[in-house]
Simulated assay, not measured.
Amino acid sequence: MEDEDVCIPNSFVKNPWVVNNIYRLKVSYINSPSEFWIVTKDQELGKFHGDLNSFYSRNKSYLKADFRNINLEGNCVVYTGECYCRANLLNVSSSVKNQKSLDAFLIDYGSTIRVTSNDVYFLTKEMYSVPQFAVKAALKGLRPSESSTWSPAAVDTFTKLVQHKVLLGQLREIDSVYQTLYLDLFNYNDDYEHTVSISRRNKRQSEKIIQLTSFHDFGVVVSPHSTLTFCNGVITSSDLMNYDLEEILENMKAKPRSNSN
């Protein structure tokens, strides 16, 4: 199914994840609040998925895999009954006559489906170069309260809260062993604010920054800092020791210039 030592790049390893950073994302598949799959590049996935389906719809007869040579755990493309998706084959569930029933993990979405060996296709070289889109995630700090597993009602509630929505996820922890991102999730349209202070080198930079209305996929509001835009200092002089503070402040006020004849 694939060339030796060739595999689709792993997004968990490839992406430079940073704790406390906020990522725009969609949840692509849910097992529970402790195990779900996210996609941070959903627009790129949509385009890639469209191109993949267009290509395999035209060329499926040339790329069909021989079930006798199917390599378990290898990268491939499977037909789900509705569309073509990249997948890893996990195991053979059953075998009837000349067909095998296979479990396939859809690497760009995080779900596992069952397909027949007639629905398995070779993966082209170009399809190997695009990293998988789905990454495993979990809610940070949440566990089932009464058992070791989440109840169907809890999973259903979580699904209704996050499914088919654009979300913001703040990365709280990275589990490199199980390749899982632990997140706090927020609705994209909620009044969740993240403030960043930006220093600038000159007036021209300030004028450009103040005009920004978006940064990457986020809408932003740029305004001068309420205090850091002013120069503060300390005046030290022994001559001022005998003067009251009110008198010093009064004499520091700007005075109108007089015209002398």
Results as ranks from 00 to 15, higher is better:
37 W>E: 03
17 W>R: 04
105 F>V: 01
168 L>H: 04
142 L>T: 14
82 E>H: 10
30 I>C: 00
129 S>G: 00
175 D>I: 03
5 D>K: 10
248 I>T: 12
223 S>H: 04
95 S>M: 13
55 F>D: 04
81 G>A: 01
199 S>M: 07
209 I>P: 02
42 D>H: 13
28 S>D: 03
66 D>G: 00
206 S>N: 05
110 G>Y: 06
121 Y>V: 00
89 L>C: 05
196 V>S: 05
8 I>E: 01
228 L>M: 10
223 S>A: 06
122 F>D: 02
256 P>C: 00
111 S>Y: 09
261 N>L: 11
56 Y>M: 02
180 T>E: 08
108 D>W: 08
20 N>H: 12
81 G>I: 04
163 Q>I: 01
240 L>F: 15
78 V>E: 00
213 T>N: 08
239 D>K: 15
245 L>Y: 15
252 M>C: 15
147 S>Q: 07
142 L>S: 11
202 N>A: 01
18 V>E: 13
61 S>V: 02
147 S>F: 09
135 V>C: 05
115 V>G: 05
66 D>I: 00
91 N>M: 10
261 N>I: 03
125 K>E: 13
22 I>K: 11
138 A>Q: 10
116 T>N: 10
252 M>W: 13
250 E>S: 14
41 K>F: 09
76 C>K: 01
147 S>R: 09
49 H>W: 09
176 S>E: 14
88 N>I: 13
91 N>H: 08
130 V>G: 01
86 R>P: 02
33 P>E: 06
4 E>V: 12
221 V>S: 05
136 K>R: 13
57 S>Q: 09
120 V>W: 00
261 N>M: 09
253 K>G: 09
93 S>R: 13
248 I>R: 10
137 A>S: 07
59 N>V: 01
